[in-house]
Simulated scan of single mutants.
Amino acid sequence: MTRLRGLWTAAGAVTLLLLSGCAQAGAGAEAPPSATGSSGVPGDGDTLMLRVAHSGGFVGPDALAGRMPETSVYADGRVIFNGPVPAVYPGPALPNVQVLTISPDALGALIDKAVAAGVEDGADFGHPGVADAPTTEITVWTASGEQKVGAEALNEARADDPELTAAQKQAREKLLAFTEQLNKMTTEPTGGTPQEYRPETLAAIVRPYVEPGDGLPERPQTAEWPGPALPGESLSPTTGLSCVTATGKQADAVLAAAKDANSATPWISGGDAYSVRLRPLLPDETGCADLKAAR
């Protein structure tokens, strides 16, 4: 598994005041059947306890494969999430992934809040009349094991969508409120400053470089690829995407080079040019295989 490098502990414990209405910590957050400390939190800090992610939507195959979960919460209290990005083109070469740390009590309260919001296998959120919108998927570990739900167009659908029943509208309102509170926890932290997430393993989704035809007067400046030889292993024969992973000094070199690049930079490896989407791997991910299942 990947493990966080750097000074993420500097974030400190974040008190989730916005979740003060939740039940007491641990009431609905029984750990998986692994080594467990006295606090009820699994001994393996990389155990995933809660995740909010998007699937589908009108995006390209490389964006699907490289899309980061919105928020991932782990048993040791790490909250890893997507930070803000500048609204410019081309965008940064590396996504702005940040991390903060919450206390065991706050973690238990967060799990309780997710359960209260309706994260339970079989929950019905209906099918709104919205095309090409992503599905919000929320996974949480509870006393009953892993629970997962998906709500289509959770942020895009109208509150009065005629395709939804009254019960489905009510369920979606509760789930949306939970995601908004979770977003507030990361955008307005109350107990510490989020830090840059530096992964042990960095993945790169690769495709042959094609001139963008975006009308910009200058061709993007090329950069020498300092990681493993491209294009790497195939992710999907139908899309032509491939993948490589970098660790240790190679990962450090790619991260350093990415600071002087952007999302349109052609990377040169073995004399050929490639477009690369960088994707930091999370603590519960191990390699390119984790990206093959992206939807």
Rank of each mutant, 00 (worst) to 15 (best):
E211K: 08
P189C: 10
A223C: 04
T186G: 07
P194N: 09
G192D: 04
T186S: 02
E224V: 13
Q250F: 07
T247L: 01
G232W: 02
E188N: 13
Q221I: 11
T238R: 08
E218D: 15
T187F: 09
E224M: 12
P208R: 10
V206E: 01
G248P: 05
Q250L: 15
E211R: 11
A251P: 00
L216R: 13
G232P: 01
L202H: 03
L182Q: 04
S236E: 09
T193F: 09
S242A: 15
T222R: 15
E211T: 10
L235H: 05
T222W: 03
L182F: 14
G232M: 01
A223W: 00
Q195K: 12
G227D: 03
S242N: 12
E224F: 03
L235V: 08
G232N: 10
S242M: 01
G213T: 11
S234E: 14
G240S: 06
G232S: 11
P217L: 12
P217V: 08
G213I: 09
L230Q: 06
I205W: 04
P228V: 01
P226T: 04
T187A: 15
L202T: 03
E224C: 01
G248V: 06
R198A: 13
A229P: 01
G215T: 08
L235W: 03
R198S: 13
V206T: 06
V206D: 02
E211I: 01
K184G: 08
M185I: 15
G191N: 05
G232I: 06
T222I: 08
P217K: 12
T247F: 00
P189W: 05
P212W: 11
Y197Q: 01
Q221T: 14
P226H: 02
G240W: 04
T201K: 10
T201R: 10
E200P: 05
P220E: 05
Y209M: 09
T193W: 09
P231H: 05
G192L: 02
E211D: 13
W225A: 05
P220H: 02
R207P: 03
V210C: 00
T193M: 14
P208C: 07
G248N: 09
E224W: 04
D214A: 04
E233V: 14
A203N: 08
G215R: 10
L241A: 02
N183V: 05
T193G: 06
R207W: 07
G191C: 08
E224Y: 02
G191R: 00
P237T: 12
A246E: 02
P199V: 07
T186C: 14
G240Q: 03
G215A: 09
T201D: 04
G227Q: 03
T238H: 00
K184F: 13
K249N: 12
P237I: 12
K184L: 15
T239R: 05
E218Q: 15
V210Q: 14
P217C: 13
S242Y: 01
Q250K: 15
L182P: 02
P212K: 07
Q250M: 15
A204V: 11
E224N: 12
C243R: 05
P212L: 13
T186E: 07
P217R: 10
N183L: 12
V210D: 11
